[in-house]
Design a protein around this nucleic acid. Structure first.
Length: 457
RNA sequence: UCCUCGGUAGCUCAGUAGGUAGAGCAGGUGGCUGUUAACCACCUUGUCGGCGGUUCGAGCCCGUCCCGGGGAGCCA
């Protein structure tokens, strides 16, 4: 019976015959037999295999095994007499499924830099850290769906190709089916969609459509930004979670966001304990303590105006001077969440002038019902707002922003016909994984990162 | 895109006032009856990021481009 190593270690059926299949991590020879570390990706841990010299292919094959070779092993599970592992497989047979020429296989049984591993993105999930990231990413994805589904949210598959720019969300990748040389002049009429199209920068506007029919919805899909951003927190292609809730104000919006984050932390710490422990030991010392602190303390909440006051009172000089009306800079956000509060912080009610047209204007007229969640180490992880549901107010803001209302007729119809207060937010999936894993560079938490000048496969 | 620091063996790095390159690990061969970053002995490895310039001579100096780290802007 073939069994995955994760289940084998959990059930630990000592004395029974088992079969595993995986990749060799290392081989150690001692006299007439060998120790093999086999990993099958089901968990961080390897299973130690004892291959005795009496095996038929010991000299011809087993002694040639090296890192990266794939094998199938069968044998008896026994308690290990040595320290380092509780159980091991005493092999009765071993089949080499695929060789990995050790002269050329780039992964060695020592630590590699993440920069180097990025150059071999097709092999890096075979390392401990990147394998752990992949499992944690998968678990978080599952938990996100569980969280929303259990609360009655419907998932909406918003379009990846779009003809409407979500104003203010960054540069859109242009998309065309025309061959080079078909010429730009008068080409719009011959475009595949009959008009300019691009890759979505956000599913929010389309999610609002379904929120106005199904009530509570969420999107979870890829988004694209053609920004020339070269930082450890930006990607040209990333995944975003965007819930959108009808009959919902900013207060409930914040509650859902906070509940989501603490739910996800609890889930991943329960179900990926071994991988999280790896991050705690080798990626960010004190990670687990930090995350428990986030789960046990309520998020701090202040308004933008209070935040500005705090910054003005700070005994600290900022590179960017503070005054009411400015957008908060990284240094300001870091100071507030890391030094003043030392825990996640929700900042609300930003000046209308620095926020997009769809955010609901407050009674004071000069601020909007926006909220950003800032977390230590990452900065902004969630951005959201109550949406403007009043047609006249919305059109006035669109005109002020220089947006052609005719292009957004479908969006304005949501306010013309049965409009309701509604709210939502966006959570960057990769930033969430960074926050949870302690990984410093966002390029390590997505399987195939896309950044300016980098998209190898 | 801006500031800053880097790019030398498969990996991580060292390198002399400009004179033709080196250590650890990995890899190869042999040894070792319980190893676990195994150990011991011996051996192999380079267009010194690309292009151009200065010079009798450039890994080292100058110019430029590419890539990466840290920080910033934009944002998720």
């Amino acid at each position: 019976m073939q069994i995955r190593i994760k289940n084998l270690l959990k059930q630990s059926p000592v004395g029974s015959c088992v079969q595993v299949a995986g990749w060799i991590r290392t081989r150690r020879d001692t006299g007439g037999f060998s120790f093999l570390e086999v990993n099958d990706g089901s968990c961080l841990a390897n299973i130690q295999v004892i291959a005795q010299g009496s095996l038929a292919n010991y000299e011809t094959e087993i002694k040639r095994l090296s890192a990266g070779c794939s094998v199938r092993v069968e044998g008896m599970l026994q308690t290990s007499p040595a320290k380092g592992q509780d159980v091991e497989i005493l092999a009765s047979g071993l089949t080499v499924v695929g060789w990995a020429d050790p002269e050329h296989y780039p992964l060695q049984k020592k630590r590699h830099s993440f920069e180097f591993l990025r150059e071999i993105s097709h092999l890096r999930p075979r390392t401990n850290a990147l394998g752990a990231v992949a499992r944690v990413r998968s678990r978080l994805s599952y938990a996100i769906h569980t969280f929303f589904q259990e609360r009655g949210f419907s998932q909406v598959h918003t379009p990846i190709i779009t003809t409407s720019d979500c104003e203010g969300a960054g540069e859109m990748f242009q998309l065309t089916a025309m061959a080079a040389g078909d010429g730009p002049r008068g080409a719009e009429a011959r475009e595949f969609f009959g008009r300019r199209a691009g890759l979505t920068v956000s599913g929010q506007l389309q999610a609002e459509v379904y929120a106005m029919a199904l009530g509570d919805v969420y999107t979870f899909g890829p988004t694209f930004r053609a920004e020339n951003s070269n930082t450890s927190r930006h990607l040209a292609e990333f995944w975003m979670i965007e819930p959108e809730m009808a009959f919902c104000d900013l207060a409930r919006n914040m509650r859902v966001a906070e509940e989501l984050l603490t739910y996800l932390l609890d889930d991943v710490m329960t179900h990926c304990a071994e991988d999280m422990d790896l991050f705690d030991r080798f990626i960010e010392k004190g990670l687990l303590t930090r995350l428990r602190g986030v789960m046990e303390n309520e998020f701090a909440r202040i308004t933008y105006t209070e935040a500005v006051d705090r910054l003005l009172q700070a005994k600290k000089t900022f590179q960017y001077p503070v005054q009411w009306g400015i957008d908060l800079q990284s240094e300001h956000e870091r100071y507030l969440t890391e030094e003043v509060f030392g825990r996640p912080l929700i900042v609300t009610d930003y000046p209308a002038a620095i926020k997009p047209f769809y955010m609901r204007v407050n009674d004071d007229v000069r601020t909007v019902a926006a909220m950003d969640i800032l977390v230590p180490g990452i900065g902004e992880i969630i951005g959201g707002s109550q949406r403007e549901e009043r047609l006249e107010v919305l059109t006035a803001r669109m005109e002020a922003a220089g947006i052609n209302c005719e292009d957004y007729g479908w969006y304005l119809d949501l306010r013309r016909y049965g409009t309701v207060p509604h709210a939502g937010f966006g959570l960057g999936f990769e930033r969430l994984i960074q926050f949870v894993s302690g990984m410093a560079n966002i390029r390590e938490v997505i399987p195939f990162p896309r950044t300016p000048g980098f998209a190898p496969c």
